[in-house]
């Protein structure tokens, strides 16, 4: 610190001599940094008031409008009810077999665009063998209740659909 030892001594003397208004007079320069700080703070409050998003804090510490924005996303999977709405026949077949709990889109893939414009957007043909194997290939980590086969030995290379009808796989 740059002040000489005598400075503190002088201060004591000055304290004794100076009356209160005199002291304040000599603290006048301190008002300046205080004004700078207060101006900065006021500016901050002004800017803050202007730029905090409108719905922030309505429902919690977040922008409430973001809930609706997130909901705007368009679904890619139409949902089982939509498929069944048009494809009643095959839905009925499926409902009578072991695949009754497997949703259409589990195999056929996302269909919302197809449902919105059935003529223009059509599904690509499925690779049935790969699709069957994806679930039913034998794997000791799969639960025991689940039907599994070693496809090579089970079919001898013949495609699954030559025996099984995918919408109702049991004989």
């Amino acid at each position: 610190m740059g002040r000489p030892a005598t400075g503190r001594g002088r201060r004591a003397a000055a304290d004794e001599e100076a009356c209160v208004p005199g002291k304040l007079k000599h603290a006048g320069h301190l008002i300046r940094p205080a004004v700078v700080l207060l101006l900065g703070f006021a500016l901050f409050l002004l800017v803050r008031g202007a730029v905090v998003p409108a719905t922030f804090g309505e429902l919690g510490h977040y922008r409430a409008a973001s809930l609706d924005e997130i909901r705007q996303q368009a679904p890619a999977f139409a949902g089982q009810a939509v498929c069944a709405g048009c494809h009643a026949g095959v839905t009925a077949v499926r409902a009578s077999g072991k695949h009754r709990a497997v949703a259409c889109e589990a195999c056929h893939g996302p269909s919302a665009r197809h449902a919105a414009d059935p003529a223009a957007v059509r599904h690509a043909p499925l690779d049935v063998v790969a699709l069957c194997a994806g679930c039913h290939e034998k794997d000791s980590a799969k639960p025991k209740w689940f039907r599994q086969v070693e496809s090579k030995e089970h079919s001898g290379g013949a495609p699954c659909q030559s025996c099984h009808q995918p919408h109702k796989p049991e004989f």
Binding site: R3, R8, D15, H26, H29
Partner: peptide
């Protein structure tokens, strides 16, 4: 200086304290 040139002994005493 923020526009103040008061560096008299009393002002310095105040600075020291603050």
């Amino acid at each position: 200086t923020l526009g103040s040139d008061d560096i008299g002994p009393e002002a310095r005493a105040v600075d020291d304290k603050v």
